[in-house]
Each structure stands twice: as structure tokens, then as C-alpha cells.
Design a protein around this nucleic acid. Structure first.
Length: 1169
RNA sequence: GGUCGUGUAGCUCAGUUGGUUAGAGCGCGUCGCUGAUAACGACGAGGUCCCAAGUUCGAAUCUUGGCACGACCA
């Protein structure tokens, strides 16, 4: 921290290092326990409930996590300042395949067999320690970003209490019949013996060529006629159970003369297939698909057909039907490819399996078709297909095709190029769809309730509700819960080894009380052998599997747990209650902290955590009339995807992290490129680099203020850096300005008796403090702006709209910096330290800074804290000043201080100032050159009187001597009248274009005069007279050619451009002041030190200029004396200041002045004793 | 293939219930200011508001159909 100078405040350096500042603030928070205190002081207040979605700590945190953690910090901080109690319990997701994969990598093993060989016990132990591998990095990032969360009270999904909560919920489902066993067709990695998640499958798609076969399925009831069926997986043909057609497609029966055979397939495809076969296919008849349904056929292989071909079963309708090998109907059949008739092997395709299930559903229980699956989990044919037993199915494709050909069942064979998934870990291994036994939660039974629950959630952006999330719920399928893995919450179901009956267990203690329980010694022994083992492992595999007990279903039988663990998404979805260990413990906490007011994660959690939470909560609590929808969360911000930005060479595609002009490798042009963040490409910089170079506030502000949070956010250090000057630096500059002058003037707020939160009421007791109403207009204006800003920010933040809140805040700081401070500079420089207006300026700025700190604190917690600390510094350690800005209450707008009229007027004034500068610019008249006058033509005279009272301000800003206002534009301006479309449109309807034209033709001046005298005007259109009132007309001013003018929406400004000798001399004086000030600065003179000035010149004009403006120059430069001396030839070039080499300065000095009047000059500035 | 989203200046994005001169920041260019100064201000160039049709007096905005990109799911 900088040293304290003479004044009340510590100096605030102009080139502040935000990263260093932040480190010291982190220290301060730690030392003063600020986070803890922010909770303690709200202990009795209404709760604002936040749920932390648990990240997986076994990977490094990346920029996307910074975004989620930033937004998760913002709203709790805001709500805490607003007076709510917002506890923030951290959490960690610790189970699942990613952890196992990580450990496998470390061990250099792959398959489940490898894991079994290594030993499940040591494997699980390794998983448990592995999840903490990157914990330190996570904690460091969390702290550095300023994310306040209780890391030491974190919930952990592998903890025993957590696991038991999950068990309790699953037992509830089991007992209510919502947990059942079934088949699921999954993408199966046969070589590795494991299923792959959708995400993993998605990673492994490759374009490959597979055989594509058109196979003849002879129809039993039609002589010499075959259904033509298409498939790209010949190996599934032995498992054929049905052929599917679409009822709404037309099918043709064609005659193939060459084979003397009739074929049935989609009518639309006849030509295509005839072309492929290079044969004439004569269409004999057509029929709809519906007419084909029910026809029986002979499948190409008879491994099952030979025994079951004639098997029939009883339908629920009372009729009897063949269980298999007949034509069924399915919507998914199209004529996009193939033949419009699809081979169905339900074991090896998800839609095929669904078809089987719906077929089974038509039959009486036990009468329908059973799943045919002659392939083992190793991907090889079983002895049910003796000819190919032991062959890897994909390799059997060829032999099977050959056999079809030999038996004259193959009609056509071709190669088919398509995308097919391979294992992402072993990319030679194609995946196959394969049926596995699996446990399901019957979420479909609660679909309507979930939808109803969803309707009441406030989603941001809104379209998630009925869009992505709503649709997902609408097409809900039962949740496949079980995983045939090792590191996860064990499925708490025990099976009777004799009868197969099952029961669920809801707690470890419950298990301990089971009759005849054995197996506890397995854990005890492990613990004895290694006392460091964490106790939570005893509810995990393999220890939990060792526990067996007497069956309640049959005497003498034993109960043994099923082997599966559960989907780790279930773990995280159970966190609303499991984080407290509910219901075994933590009942009070659960009741207080359910449901959540606020959660936020990225879009990818739609089907992840957002769904798992909603599903579990709805199934568990949806029937409880006490618990109202929505739960378990009410407001949810869905964050956009984060993209990386890099520079990519257009030629060699080499990526550059930094902005470079040419490619480092090949010298070609580089282009900015946004793309997905990728670990492999390393196309983004680590969060720590951002923290170290720009700071956490910069990153946070960039996230909050540059776009609504749900759009995709480009993570680029360039963009983050560029966002700093606009807000952070501007705020800092205002603050630094304040500190500089407050110290010079000895402004000391410590006379305030009870500073507390530095709110207007408490500041009122300060020395020299006057009520706002008594202060100057500029002060009243900025205070009004402050309250307007406060009102908007609170409104926006209450609606979870951080983006507009930030834009508003940034706009206020801009007004403060670029108008209030800019226009108040003179007041701060005033000679008399006790001047009331000067003190007003200090108190106003002080109040604005204090309030801005509070407003900005949730967004940029570091810099606001740093400023706050200095603002309260003068009060001393024992004062009532609140220790930290984060312990303050969030500001509330004071409507009484909002002055909309003043706001409008000040905007107009600023616009006129802008226009004046613009007009000067066009005439190339620099601001240092005074001008005699300026005329302002107002669009609307309503504010003229007000503006006239601000002549001084505008004169100073624009450096003009006189300002005149007029509504009589004279020669300067032409009035244009345009219709107010919004008002006139509905009134005149189709006449509008004509009205517009009539306006164009009308004389604006006349119409305006009529309006101002009688309040109305008439317009002739198509023989009709349309009466207009003032509201129907918009007036625009247009500056005429030939004037130094600038036009805006509200006014036109015209400058007097004639330069008299007096004006030129005044300009020279101002130039001189500028040069003297420059020299003072170069010599590093203190701002208040007095000087004497010697001016060497031979120019009589310049001498006159000095003499005429002596008071002005003396006043501006704090000169005690100005001496004018002769300049001898050549002196300019050789002159050197007393202490410094100022050659360059001299050159510049000469240049500046010669531009004006071709006078040479040199200036000597000396400090007076 | 399905669902959802996005398409506006060189880049990143705003744009309220449809209203006729479509905005901001950055970048670029020109200029200015000068005791907040490694800051700041003004001005300028730059737009087929993805395309097409429709509704309407009037469409960046509403409807329909395309196209492109992205995400998720198949």
C-alpha cells in the first residue's frame, strides 16, 4: 500500500496494478474474516438460497469454470448486501467413469478385466485419492477469483452421509415401484467390456465403408415373392425378428425377369434399384405399407426360425399371432436409403428394441416374442449360431454375406460410406449396439409433474423453459440408472439368492441391523491394515458387496447386493438433500435451504444437473402438498458456451496466442479466429495468466458487462484487456483525482460523527456538508444520476439481468468522469479551501464514490474494496465506519433526489457542448483559440431559460466569449417538418405515404408558426384536410451551407469564426499557459508551488498578448512574476533548462507558437524561493 | 435426421409493444485537449440488418419457406 501523504487519504497511483491490489485485498478479507462476518450480520434475516453445482475436482479448472464461478458469486454477494442470509456451501462431484479413466491412465490399464486383475479394492482406493488431485488448483482459483463459498464445509458425493442420503431416495423409489430392471440397448465396447456414454460415443465417429446388403425375405403366403430388405450390418441378420415397413408409404411388387422372381419394396425406389441392378424391373402392382403388415416371411438364417418359426402367442385382443418373422409397421422407416423395408434385430438397435417392446406389449404376458441375442458381451457369436461361434461379429460380415449369396438370398451387395462410432480410447475398435440388463427409474410416470414443475421455474434465457429443456422433458424416457463399474454410489438393492426377490436398503445402520449379517470384517481388516483409509469407503465397493444377510423371503437363503453402481448424475441431482445428509441428519438445514432461489451452470447441464435435480426432486417431493412447485430451484441462469480466440495463420494454420502481425512460422497473414476451447490445441491462456496480468476484477467485469450471460462468450486476453479502461480504469481515475485534490486541500471527512456506511444521512454531520438542495446544479445533477442509476441497477439485478445493470453502472461512471469531474475541475482548484462550493464538490464526489463502491461491489469486489478502505481510512480504526464495502447494505434509490427535468436539460447541454466541438472540428478551430460567439438554435425552446443560466459552463467548455440562443433561425437553419408516424399512422392508415409527401412539400416554417399560434395546422391530402396538432409533427433543424455549424437532434450550433487581433492574442496567451504548465510538469514541480517565468521574444504581438492577459496567465500558472525579455538570434536552438535536457521541448515550443503568429519564443520557468 | 439457438459495421455485440436518420465498444483514419495525462474528447470512413415471399400505410422487429453457423440429441 502506498504511504500516507500529508492529506487524509493514501495516495492512489495513476498507474495502478490491479493484480497487486487484489492480492492485498485477499489478505485483508482473510485477516478480517469478511466473508464470515457478511453471513453473521445477516444471521436472523430471510434466506436467499443458493445451490452450488458440484464440479469434478479431478481435472484442472479452466476458463469456463471462471465464468460459472463468477456468476455464482455475483448474485449471492448482491443479495447478501440487500440484507439476505445467503449461505454458500461448496460441493464436489467425485464419482464416475472419468475418475476411473484417470486412474486407469495412471496405472496404464484399460479394460474391466485389467481392473479386476489389478484388484477392485486398491482401484477404488486410488479413485478416492485421485479426485483430490487438483483440489489445490481449484481452491486457489476459487479464492483468486473472489468467489466466496464455504470450501471447508463442502459436500462430497462419496462421503458416507451423502451416499446414505442417495440410498434413502432410491429406497423410496424402489418401495414405490419406481425402480425396476430392464434391458437397455447401449453403445458397447466389446473388447473393453464396457458401455460408453453418449458423450464418449460422440467423440469417436469416423467415416467408414461398410457392406450394404439387399436381402430377399421370401413371403410365405405369396408365391415366388420376396420382400426386399436392406441393412448395413449383415452380422445382425441371424438375429432378425421382424421386418418393418411404413404404413404410409406405397410399395410396389415388381417382376425381375432375369431371376424370375417377384420383389416387394418401396415404389419410389424402383427406378433407383433397377439402375443399380442394371435390370428391367416391371411394376406389377402397388399397395400401401399397411396392406403388408402382418405378412409372414422366412428369415435369411434359420438358427432360431427352425425351432420357433411356427410359434404363436395370444394377443391381448384375444386373437393369436405369430410371435416373430412377420412384417410390422414403424414410423421411422423412410425411403431416404435402402428399400423402404427394414430388417429388425432388436438386440442391436435402440429403435429396433423399442419395436420389440411394443410388440411384446400387444401379447398376453409371457406369450410375446423374446429378445434374440446370439452374441456375447465379448462381441462374438455364441453357440446359438454354431457356424460362426467365436467369431467377432464385424469380421463375420463377410462370411455371412457369402453364405447369403450361396443360398441365393442376396439380391445386391454394395459398399456404403457412413459415420460410425469407434471407441475413443482404442480407435480401431468399432462399437456395437448391445443389450444389457440395467436398472431404470420410472421417470416417465412423473413426466407431467416434471413439466408442471418446469413451467414455474424462471429460466434465463426464457426460451430454455419451453425450448431445449421443455422438449427434453416432453420426450422423457426412463432414467437408466445403473452402471457396471466400480467407483460410484453402490445401488442399494439386495437380492435373495434363492428366490430372486429384492429389497432396498436406505442407510448403513439399517444394514447393520439385518439378521445374520456377515462380511463386516472385510472392511475392518482393510482399515486395520491401513488406518489411513477414509471411513467413507466402507459404503463403497468392494466392502459393501461383502455384506450379506438372511433372506426375509426364504428361510436359509442369503441376501446379496446387486453388483452395479449408479450414474453419477444421480449423485449431483440429489444434492439438494444429500448435501445435508437428509433425512438421516440435517433436517433443519434441509428445510431452511430448500428450494434454491438461484442456481447457474452452463448450457451443457440442461440434460445433466438441471435435469437430474428436477427429476429427483419431482419424484421425491412432487406428491407432497406442502412443497410447492417449482423445486428444487426457482431461478436458473443458463450460461453460454465459452469460446477461445486466437490468431491463426491463413496459410499454414499455425496458432498464435498473442496478437502478432505475421505468422511466426511462415510469415503469412494471420486472422482472428474464434473456436471451441480445446485442451489439445491449447488455444486459450490459463486463468492464472489473466489474474496475473489484468486481475480478477477485469475478468469478472468482462464476463458480466460485455454480453448477456447466455450468449457464447469469447475468452480472449485481448478482449479482457480492452474492457479495462472503460470501467475499472475510469472509476480508478475519478477516485485517484479525488484523492489527489482532497489531500492538497486537506479535505477531511473525519468530522462526520457516525460514518457507518457513508450514506448521505450519516455524512450530513460532516464539516461543511450542505444538503444537496443547497448545492450547485451540477452536484444536484450527479446525485440525481446516481439515484437513477441505483434504481435501474436494483431493478435489473432483481431480474437477474447483470448485463444491463453493468451497462447502466458503466454509464454512470462515464457521466461522473467525463462530465461531473471534468466540469468541476475549477471548483476543486479554487483558492479558498473553505469555499462552500468547493466543499460541496468534495462532499458530492465523496458521496458518489462511496455509493459507486457499494453499487459495484458485487461485480468487482476487489477494486471497490480498495477504494472503500481509503475512503473510510480518514475516520480512524475506532470509528463506526463499516470495515468492508461488502458488509454494507446495497444502496436504495432516493426518488426525492431524482430530477428527470434536470437530467433532460443536462443531456441537452452536453449535446450542445458536443455540437460546439464538432463545429470547431469542421472549421479546424482548435479549442485553445477563443471565439467571439456562438449561436444555438433550439428545436424546442422549453429549456432555453435553463440553458442561459449555464452560459459560463459552455463558454469554458467551448472557449467562446458569448452565447446566444434563438428560436428564430434566420439564415442559418432550415426547418424540416416530418410526420410523427407512430401517431399519424393509425389515424390516416393507407394515406400515410401521401401524408409523408405532403409534409415534404409543405413549408415548415409556416406550419410551425401556425402550430405555435393556434395550436393546430392543416394539411391537404387527396382533397381531404387533415388537422394536425403539435404532437403530430416532428421538427428537425438543418444547418444551411456556409456556416460553421453542427446539427444534432435537439439543436443546431453556429460558431462565429471571425478572428480579431484581440482573439488571436487571447489564443496566444492560452498557448503560453499550456507551454508553461508543460514545463512545470517536466520539471516535476509540485502542483501548488509558485514559479517565476521569463519569456524571451521579439514579437510585439506576443508581448501585447502577455500584457493584455497577464492576470489570466498568472492565475493559471501560479506565477508570481512574468518577465518579458528580448530574444537574441539563435538562442532558441541552444537554450537548455537549468536541470534537464529539454531540447525537444524547445523545438516543440517554437513550433506551437509559430503556427499562430510566426513568433519565436523561449520560456524559462523557475521555482521561486 | 430431430430439437433448440444464432445470423445487424472489419471484430464483439445492443436494438424495448412494428414508426421511416439502425446504435455501442474495440479496431482503423483525422483532429483536438493537456496538472485525472501510459488518461481523455470530437469527428470520419465502414451496413443489401443472411436470402426470398407474405402481413401492414410502414418490417432489423411479426408470419412462412429457404440458406449458413453453433449446441444438444439421434
Amino acid at each position: 500500500m502506498p504511504e500516507k501523504e500529508q492529506g487524509s487519504f493514501q495516495t492512489a497511483s495513476n498507474n495502478v496494478s490491479f493484480p497487486d491490489l487484489e492480492e492485498s485485498i485477499l489478505e485483508f478479507w482473510k485477516k478480517n474474516d469478511v466473508y464470515k462476518r457478511s453471513l453473521e450480520q445477516r444471521a436472523d434475516q430471510k434466506r436467499y438460497v443458493f445451490f452450488e453445482g458440484p464440479p469434478t475436482a479431478n481435472g484442472k479448472p479452466h476458463p469456463g469454470h471462471c465464468l460459472t464461478r463468477a456468476i455464482k458469486d455475483l448474485f449471492p454477494r448482491y443479495k447478501t448486501m440487500q440484507g439476505y442470509l445467503c449461505e454458500r456451501k461448496a460441493g464436489w462431484d467425485t464419482h464416475g467413469l472419468p475418475v476411473e479413466v484417470e486412474v486407469c491412465k495412471e496405472l496404464g490399464i484399460h479394460s474391466k478385466e485389467d481392473i479386476e486383475a489389478y484388484g477392485v479394492e486398491p482401484f477404488v482406493q486410488k479413485c478416492q485419492t485421485s479426485v483430490w488431485q487438483y483440489m489445490q488448483q481449484w481452491e486457489q482459483l476459487t479464492e483468486r477469483l473472489g468467489f466466496w463459498v464455504d470450501l471447508n464445509k463442502a459436500y462430497v458425493t462419496y462421503h458416507q452421509s451423502y451416499v446414505e442420503s442417495v440410498w434413502w431416495s432410491l429406497k423410496s423409489f424402489f418401495d414405490r415401484g419406481l425402480l425396476y430392471q430392464g434391458h437397455k440397448i447401449i453403445w458397447w465396447w466389446a473388447q473393453g467390456g464396457t458401455a460408453l456414454s453418449a458423450g464418449e460415443v460422440g467423440q469417436g465417429y469416423k467415416t467408414v465403408k461398410d457392406p450394404s446388403v439387399y436381402v430377399k425375405f421370401p413371403l410365405l403366403d405369396r408365391e415366388n415373392t420376396s420382400l426386399l430388405v436392406w441393412t448395413t450390418t449383415p452380422w445382425t441378420l441371424p438375429s432378425n425378428q421382424f421386418a418393418a415397413v411404413n404404413e404410409n408409404i406405397q410399395y410396389a411388387t415388381v417382376y425381375d425377369a432375369e431371376e424370375d422372381l417377384y420383389l416387394v419394396f418401396a415404389a419410389d425406389l424402383v427406378e433407383k434399384i433397377a439402375t443399380k441392378m442394371k435390370r428391367e424391373l416391371e411394376v406389377k402392382s402397388t399397395c400401401s405399407g399397411a396392406e403388408l403388415v402382418g405378412l409372414r416371411y422366412q428369415p435369411p438364417f434359420d438358427y432360431f426360425y427352425k425351432t420357433d418359426g411356427d410359434k404363436t402367442g395370444a394377443l391381448k385382443s384375444g386373437e393369436t399371432e405369430a410371435v416373430a418373422w412377420r412384417i410390422t409397421s414403424a414410423d421411422f422407416v423412410t425411403t431416404d436409403s435402402g428399400t423402404g423395408a427394414v430388417h429388425e434385430a432388436p438386440a442391436f438397435g435402440e429403435v429396433d428394441y423399442e419395436l420389440l417392446v411394443s410388440e411384446q406389449d400387444r401379447f398376453e404376458r409371457g406369450q410375446g416374442p423374446e429378445l434374440i441375442c446370439p452374441v456375447g458381451p465379448n462381441g462374438k457369436f455364441t453357440n446359438e449360431v454354431p457356424e460362426f461361434e467365436g467369431q467377432w461379429v464385424k469380421e463375420a460380415d463377410k462370411a455371412l454375406t457369402k453364405k447369403l449369396k450361396e443360398e441365393n438370398k442376396l439380391y445386391l451387395l454394395e459398399q456404403y460410406e457412413h459415420e460410425y462410432p469407434f471407441c475413443w480410447r482404442a480407435d480401431e475398435d468399432p462399437l456395437i449396439q448391445y443389450p444389457r440388463e440395467s436398472w431404470f427409474i420410472k421417470t416417465t410416470q412423473y413426466k407431467d409433474k416434471m413439466l408442471e414443475n418446469n413451467q414455474q421455474i424462471n429460466w434465463l434465457p426464457e426460451h430454455i423453459k419451453d425450448g431445449r429443456f421443455g422438449n427434453f422433458l416432453g420426450s422423457n424416457v426412463d432414467w437408466a440408472l445403473s452402471r457396471e463399474r466400480y467407483w460410484g454410489t453402490p445401488l442399494p438393492i439386495w437380492v435373495c439368492q434363492s428366490t430372486g426377490q429384492m429389497e432396498a436398503v436406505g442407510a448403513y445402520e439399517e444394514l447393520m441391523t439385518k439378521p445374520g449379517l456377515t462380511g463386516t470384517e472385510v472392511w475392518d481388516n482393510a482399515k486395520a491394515a491401513n488406518p489411513d483409509l477414509v471411513d467413507d469407503l466402507k459404503v463403497h465397493k468392494p466392502y459393501i458387496d461383502a455384506l450379506t444377510y438372511d433372506s426375509p423371503f426364504e428361510a436359509g437363503a442369503r441376501m446379496q447386493r446387486v453388483s452395479e453402481v449408479i450414474d453419477c448424475w444421480y449423485d449431483s441431482g440429489a444434492m439438494p438433500f444429500a448435501q445435508w445428509g437428509y433425512p438421516h441428519q440435517g433436517e433443519e438445514e434441509f428445510k431452511q435451504q430448500f428450494p434454491a432461489d438461484f442456481i447457474s451452470e452452463a448450457l451443457d447441464q440442461t440434460r445433466g444437473w438441471f435435469y437430474s435435480q428436477l427429476a429427483i426432486s419431482t419424484l421425491l417431493f412432487g406428491d407432497d402438498p406442502e412443497i410447492k412447485f417449482p423445486h428444487p430451484f426457482e431461478n436458473c441462469i443458463v450460461l453460454g458456451l465459452m469460446l477461445a480466440e486466437g490468431q491463426m495463420c491463413v496459410k499454414c494454420q499455425h496458432r498464435h496466442m498473442e496478437v502478432v502481425k505475421k505468422c511466426e512460422k511462415c510469415g503469412s497473414k494471420v486472422q482472428r479466429k474464434t473456436e471451441k476451447m480445446s485442451k489439445r490445441l491449447r488455444n486459450y491462456s490459463a486463468p492464472n495468466e489473466i489474474f496475473d496480468s489484468f486481475g480478477a476484477d477485469a475478468l469478472r467485469w468482462y464476463f458480466f458487462a460485455n454480453q448477456p450471460p447466455w450468449t457464447s462468450i469469447i475468452y480472449s486476453s485481448r478482449a479482457i484487456k480492452e474492457s479495462i479502461p472503460q470501467f475499472l480504469l475510469r472509476l480508478w481515475n475519478v477516485y485517484s483525482f479525488f484523492v489527489q485534490y482532497a489531500n492538497i486541500d486537506g479535505f477531511d471527512p473525519s468530522s462526520v460523527s457516525d460514518p457507518a456506511q457513508l450514506s448521505p444521512e450519516t455524512l450530513a454531520s460532516g464539516r461543511g456538508y450542505r444538503p444537496v438542495e443547497q448545492r450547485s446544479e451540477l452536484d444536484r445533477w450527479i446525485i440525481s444520476e446516481l439515484n437513477r442509476t441505483t434504481k435501474t441497477i436494483v431493478d435489473r439485478m432483481d431480474n437477474y439481468d447483470n448485463y444491463v445493470a453493468c451497462t447502466t453502472l458503466s454509464g454512470f461512471v462515464d457521466s461522473l468522469s467525463n462530465w461531473y469531474v471534468r466540469r468541476s475541475r475549477d471548483r476543486f482548484w479554487a483558492e479558498d479551501k473553505e469555499d462552500a462550493d468547493k466543499l460541496d464538490a468534495y462532499w458530492t464526489l465523496f458521496e458518489c464514490l462511496a455509493a459507486t463502491c457499494k453499487l459495484a461491489a458485487p461485480f468487482v469486489p476487489f477494486v471497490t474494496e480498495a477504494i472503500w478502505q481509503n475512503l473510510i481510512g480518514s475516520f480512524g480504526a475506532d470509528s463506526s465506519a463499516v470495515t468492508s464495502v461488502h458488509l454494507c447494505d446495497y444502496p436504495v434509490a432516493d426518488d426525492g433526489k431524482i430530477d428527470e427535468t434536470l437530467s433532460r436539460q443536462m443531456n441537452l447541454l452536453r449535446e450542445i457542448a458536443s455540437l460546439g466541438l464538432s463545429a470547431r472540428m469542421n472549421e479546424k478551430l482548435k479549442v485553445r483559440q477563443p471565439l467571439s460567439g456562438m449561436t444555438v438554435v433550439l428545436n424546442d425552446p422549453i429549456d432555453q431559460a435553463w440553458l442561459e443560466t449555464h452560459d459560463e459552463l459552455l463558454k469554458k467548455e467551448l472557449n467562446v466569449q458569448e452565447i446566444a440562443y434563438t428560436t428564430d433561425a434566420g439564415d442559418y437553419v432550415t426547418y424540416q417538418v416530418v410526420p410523427n408516424f407512430k401517431l399519424l399512422g393509425p389515424r390516416v392508415g393507407k394515406l400515410m405515404p401521401k401524408v409523408k409527401a405532403a409534409f415534404g412539400a409543405a413549408d415548415g416554417k409556416t406550419m410551425l408558426e401556425s402550430l405555435s399560434s393556434s395550436g393546430k395546422a392543416a394539411l391537404e391530402v387527396e382533397g381531404e384536410s387533415i388537422e394536425l396538432t403539435a404532437d403530430d409533427v416532428e421538427v428537425r433543424l438543418k444547418a444551411n451551407e456556409g456556416w460553421a455549424a453542427a446539427q444534432g437532434t435537439e439543436a443546431v450550433v453556429i460558431l462565429s469564426t471571425e478572428l480579431t487581433p484581440e482573439l488571436i492574442r487571447a489564443g496566444m496567451a492560452r498557448d503560453l499557459v499550456r507551454l508553461i504548465q508543460d514545463d512545470r510538469k517536466t520539471q516535476d514541480l509540485a502542483r501548488i508551488s509558485r514559479i517565476e517565468v521569463e519569456i524571451f521574444t521579439n514579437s510585439s504581438e506576443l508581448r501585447n498578448a502577455i500584457n493584455e492577459n497577464r492576470n489570466y496567465i498568472v492565475g493559471e500558472t501560479l506565477a508570481r512574476e512574468i518577465k518579458i525579455r528580448d530574444l537574441t538570434n539563435g538562442e532558441v536552438d541552444t537554450f537548455i533548462f537549468d536541470q534537464k535536457d529539454c531540447t525537444n521541448k524547445n523545438v516543440r515550443t517554437e513550433k506551437v507558437l509559430t503556427e499562430v503568429n510566426r513568433a519565436s519564443v523561449k520560456i524559462v520557468v523557475r521555482l521561486t524561493k
